[in-house]
Write a protein that binds this DNA or RNA. Sequence first.
DNA 1: TATTTTTTCTCTCTACTGCTAACATCTTTT
DNA 2: AAAAGATGTTAGCAGTAGAGAGAAAAAATA
Lengths: 255, 255
Amino acid sequence: MLAVERKNRILSILQTEKKVVVSELSKLFEVSEETIRRDLEKLEHEGLVVKAYGGAVLNENAQGDLPLAVRKRTNVVGKQKIAEILSHFIKDNTSLMLDCSSTALFIAKRIKERKNMTIITNSLEILIELKDQKNWKIFSTGGLLGEDSLALVGSSADKMISGFHVNASIISCKGFDINKGFTDSNDLHASTKRAMLENCDKRILAVDSSKFDRIAFNVVGNLSDIDVIVTDVKPPEGWLEKFRATGTECIYPEE
Amino acid sequence: MLAVERKNRILSILQTEKKVVVSELSKLFEVSEETIRRDLEKLEHEGLVVKAYGGAVLNENAQGDLPLAVRKRTNVVGKQKIAEILSHFIKDNTSLMLDCSSTALFIAKRIKERKNMTIITNSLEILIELKDQKNWKIFSTGGLLGEDSLALVGSSADKMISGFHVNASIISCKGFDINKGFTDSNDLHASTKRAMLENCDKRILAVDSSKFDRIAFNVVGNLSDIDVIVTDVKPPEGWLEKFRATGTECIYPEE
DNA sequence: TATTTTTTCTCTCTACTGCTAACATCTTTT
DNA sequence: AAAAGATGTTAGCAGTAGAGAGAAAAAATA
């Protein structure tokens, strides 16, 4: 039995039983208790469970993410797929900028196992998600706290971002149109995203299929501003041709 | 049954019954009364319940508290008193800087009724506490996320603070000594506090009595750097004389 | 009000279970 | 072949729980 299989089974047991006990799991899976503890440790790191003396319980808190967020949970599966794909490309000892988007938050949750990372973000949720990472450098942009989001935006945020240069920036957007480019509904957010794209080696756009063919009010950029596009489904062939034409790499799940 | 399970059940019983009785819980969970007492003791330390003779009740005050903080709950009563006093001095339409301290967080909770405030802080907890305030401007300093705190510190935080000027800065510290001044155990925090004091009209030090006669490693400032000191108990007469000599106003609760 | 009785609490001691961390072993990947 | 990852083993440490004695608080009684 694979380690991930076991971890998934533990999660599904937790969902019905509400709690698990180390000694029982050890017998059930016929592995040592230490192995179970390590599994639980990893699951805790991923924010899915809370370890307790003798076992673990579900992290209620993680079900709906932070209690604070009134997040629109559109296409969670797609966003998870994108986070899964991207997490494989992110190595130890690299620096990243992450914008304030649910996709970026999923990515943050996924890369907790990496070592010595440097993260710059304007998302309070990502800051809180990563606050306990040892040996990481977590920078927050300053700025004005957004009205309906947990993002820091405005000129001070943009200025701060310009003071850094990272290996890669990962940003998301509200709309993606093959001709019009990618757009957002808030000009302050759009400006911050642009600043992130201007101060990195690799410009990555994470955009799930619910954004396809949508155009929001504020243009963030177009294909030539992006090095890699990551999506949850294979885009239409016509798009892929365009991507090849502009030299934009496109990554999507196999089949 | 895991210890955490029991504690969670106690909390949920509390939510419906409003109170719990040690002897009843002991029978219900089939553990000794000492064990129940220890559970309640831990829950009280976490600030979730208030122990009483024979049982415990919910801590109303903590209902809206963040799940993230494992707050050091030292002298909560004193800090509340200080917040109470200060809240009377804070008027509508003013701008404040608040540092990252539990006292500042208590103050933030108290002044939510004010209108049109402008707040600058380096505390993530204060940002989240105030995120839903309508018609307020909430600014975050940027900076490096502290190791053991939810604070943003470092040169970028300090630089950002220098770009603002507010009506009053309210800061706290780890130690207050009448001769040595006020000190903190972290140089980055100390530097941020200094920056806050340098960019305001009124410099306010909120220091509860648990900090009296303690000296931490990093000096933040001395009496001449402060306009108003707010404490939870009346300081010794000798101190009051010194305050008069340096022209520092001192406010404390009446007897 | 003062005193006694009862209840509850605090503290210490002890036993036990589970945890952490370091190392060894084996497998898989590069 | 070397590096990385997963698993098992061990020893010392930390968290949990119960028992009993004495202190403190509340209630009952004088």
